[in-house]
Amino acid sequence: MLKLYTNYRSVSTHRVRIALNHKGVPYEPVYVDSDAGEHLKMEYLWLNPQGLVPALVVDQNLIITQSFAILEYLDERYPERPLLPEDVRQRAKIRSFAQVAVADMNPLNIVRVFRYMRDQMQVPFDARRKWFEHWAHKGFAAMEWMLAQEPEQDFAFGMSPTLADVCLVPQVHNGLATGLDLSDYTNLRRVYRSCLSLSAFQAAAPETQSDTLKS
């Protein structure tokens, strides 16, 4: 069975949980407590030398880090209920949309960035909050525009979830959980609501994870 090293606050791990659920792939969650420094212990650094989650242990010879690499592995290894369509042009559009969240938004607005700003740079809370809101809105505005170019459908790029939805939902959830005003993003909120009607997305939500319930 696959083993997923996870933390409920991790947006990156949230998207991997969605994909695993969507494809019906069983896995064993291993909760990494970053507040207790478990991500920096040598036994975890052997799995992921960056000291980040997620890490997906497939077997003793394959450990995958970086959420996007994990998502693409899952889609190739478990082709049922695909997250990317066959059409090459549509695949490119979906990847472009997903990477706004994965490559542009998420790296700027994660816990380790804010801890460094606070502890090493003495950046006050209000300035850190302004940083978060600026980059979050930049990303959401771009994705809203991209969706506005598409026909209005249940999900971002069609009538079933794709990689775009898997990457969008954790970012929107994080924005809402931190009090970000998303009222201007009509298309994003529409897609988000459609996704949350599905059990795969519901079961992956941070508030349903065992390490959330223990915190």
Rank of each mutant, 00 (worst) to 15 (best):
Y5T: 03
Y8M: 06
V11Y: 11
S12P: 10
S12A: 15
H14L: 06
H14I: 03
V16C: 12
I18M: 01
A19E: 02
L20W: 05
N21I: 10
H22I: 14
E28W: 01
D33S: 08
S34F: 15
G37V: 14
E43Y: 12
Y44R: 07
L45P: 02
W46C: 14
N48K: 06
N48H: 00
N48T: 04
G51R: 09
D59F: 09
L62W: 03
Q66P: 02
E72I: 11
L74C: 02
L74E: 02
D75T: 08
Y78M: 04
L84G: 05
D87M: 04
D87P: 12
R89I: 09
Q90G: 06
R91D: 07
K93R: 15
S96I: 04
A101C: 14
V113G: 00
R115T: 13
M117F: 13
D119K: 10
Q120M: 11
Q122P: 10
V123H: 01
P124G: 14
F125A: 12
F132P: 01
H134Q: 11
H134I: 13
W135L: 03
A136K: 03
A136H: 13
H137Q: 14
F140T: 04
A141N: 01
M143D: 09
A148K: 15
A148E: 15
A148F: 10
D154V: 03
C167F: 01
L168F: 02
H173A: 14
H173F: 05
L180D: 04
D181C: 01
S183V: 07
S183G: 08
N187Q: 10
L188S: 03
R190T: 03
V191T: 09
V191W: 03
V191C: 08
S194E: 08
C195S: 07
S199H: 08
S199W: 00
F201S: 00
A203V: 14
Q209N: 05
D211F: 05
D211H: 01
L213A: 15
K214G: 11
